[in-house]
């Protein structure tokens, strides 16, 4: 993840926050005349949203008998997500982020000390409403790319080396509503990295897949009170 993309994401966050406040004020006026509808686990018209934007950080944890589990140790990470509610609480989204690792065993991966994985993926999922303040979401990546930038060589003449992979990601999150359009979240994700690394056949299993978990926290800003399809149907 580049500085430019981080800057763009932060700007985007500010715009969304500004819009979110504007929408909230506008909708509060409209809702004064609406009948209160109680929360339901699967659906709540009152708590319906159009867009949600999240910004946060996470801690990655490698696992398994693979090059990540044996060779890398998770340090930190950042996440930016933008998801749209297509119909009721079914959503699709785009995410970008990065996870940072230290190399704990150079004999297993090569002579570098750090690895940064840039993560870009699309995802879909569904959001449940267990209580008045909580939103429980399940999501799964549709298509994702990972770029490993390996750095920290014994000489400055080797700046970096790159590996690439496809990402399969399965996640769950919990949003707590501090205000109608502003929440905090905790999330967990299980990530499987299917690498494109060419290795001797006896290392296929070891380098073919890397696995890591991530636990994150952050902020959520939402916009709008109707899903995409309902805007056309109703």
């Amino acid at each position: 993840m580049t500085l430019r993309s981080i800057t763009n994401a932060v700007c985007f966050t500010c715009i969304c926050l500004y819009s979110s406040i504007g929408f909230a004020q506008e909708l509060a006026i409209e809702n004064e005349f609406e009948t209160t509808i109680g929360s339901d686990f699967f659906d709540s018209e009152q708590r319906q949203r159009f867009f949600a934007m999240t910004i946060g950080g996470h801690k990655p944890f490698t696992s398994g008998d693979n090059f990540m589990g044996k060779g890398l140790e998770g340090k930190s990470g950042i996440d930016f997500k933008f998801q749209m509610y297509v119909y009721k609480h079914f959503f699709i989204g785009l995410a970008t982020g990065a996870s940072y690792f230290d190399v704990k065993n150079q004999e297993l991966v090569g002579s570098y000390r750090k690895s940064r994985i840039a993560e870009n993926y699309a995802y879909f999922g569904y959001e449940f409403l267990p209580t008045d303040k909580l939103r429980l979401g399940l999501n799964m990546s549709i298509d994702g790319d990972l770029d490993y930038k390996n750095t920290g060589f014994s000489t400055a003449d080797i700046a970096e080396q790159h590996d690439s992979a496809k990402l399969n990601r399965y996640g769950v999150y919990l949003h707590y509503e501090l205000a109608s359009h502003f929440m905090i979240y905790v999330d967990y994700a299980y990530n499987v990295s299917k690498t494109n690394i060419d290795v001797p056949f006896q290392l296929d299993d070891f380098f073919g897949k890397g696995k890591y978990h991530s636990i994150g926290v952050g902020l959520v800003f939402t916009i709008g009170n109707r899903d995409l399809i309902s805007r056309f149907i109703n």
């Binding site: 004999e107 002579s111 570098y112 003449d157 080797i158």
Partner: peptide, 22 residues
């Protein structure tokens, strides 16, 4: 002359070595 190290490892008690490298 230079230290452009791509991979490193050590031999075991049997003298065998198996090093993964860039």
């Amino acid at each position: 002359e230079n230290q452009y190290i791509l991979g490193e490892g050590y031999s075991n008690a049997d003298g065998h070595f198996s090093v993964i490298s860039l």
